Computed example of a mutant assay.
Amino acid sequence: MSTQASVSQHGQGSSERDLFVAAMGHVAAPVAVITTDGPAGRFGITVSSVTSASADPPMMMACINRRSPAFAAIIENGCFVINMLSHDHVGIAENFAGRAGAFPAFDFGCAAWKPGQAGGWLLDGALASFDCTLEQSVDVGTHGVIIGGVRHTCLRPTMTLLHFRRAFHRPEPVLHNS
């Protein structure tokens, strides 16, 4: 069966939204926990829609559902840290996605943290952390796109954690045959 036929069959009886969600599930995305702290409180949330926005000046952006208390706190606190997770951080990703495990959901006790310069929390052992001051927020459908000016970056070269087909994965190198 061709890929096109498979997609068409999957879409039968499905709304365009359902097909869109299914298609996006087949796009591998890095996993991050975004944290914030300040007058609105301390929050963290797992996201898979994060990317750089600019290198000069350094800026990052992420999409967060506007119904999340973390989104409102980021806006009020004016700061956030994007902690890119390593392949061994599945438990942390689950925790900040709202799934209780060894710790209650959204519990910062699930890992070691240190305060960032702008006001969020840096995950000890993260692949990379981007400590940001909120520059702009844009409403897009159900989500808000937060854009932050990076004030400090931490890097620990390791294997990233990916979200693909509703599960966590680590990338495997593709071998090139010459």
Rank of each mutant, 00 (worst) to 15 (best):
A97H: 01
G44H: 00
S137R: 08
A126S: 14
I92R: 03
P157I: 01
T133E: 15
S68E: 04
C63R: 00
V81Y: 08
H87F: 15
G141W: 07
L85Q: 07
H87G: 11
W121R: 02
F96N: 01
N77Q: 03
C110A: 14
R42H: 12
A105W: 12
L134C: 09
S49L: 06
G125C: 06
Q117T: 10
H143V: 09
G78W: 05
A112W: 00
A100V: 13
H89G: 05
L123E: 09
E76N: 08
V50A: 05
L162A: 10
A73F: 08
G78I: 00
G101P: 12
D107F: 05
A112R: 11
D88S: 13
L161G: 05
A70Q: 06
C154M: 10
G41F: 06
C63P: 01
H163T: 02
K114Y: 07
P58L: 10
S52R: 13
T142V: 09
P115I: 07
N95P: 10
H143K: 04
L161S: 00
L162W: 10
M61I: 01
F71H: 15
P57S: 05
S48P: 02
G116C: 09
L162I: 11
A70V: 10
I92S: 01
M84V: 15
D124T: 15
A93Q: 09
A62W: 02
A97M: 10
Q117N: 09
L134N: 06
A100L: 09
N95Y: 03
C132Q: 07
G41V: 05
V47G: 06
S54M: 06
G120T: 00
D37P: 00
G98Q: 03
P157T: 09
G148H: 07
A72C: 06
D37W: 03
A53L: 15
V81N: 03
S54Q: 10
S48F: 03
T158Y: 00
I64T: 02
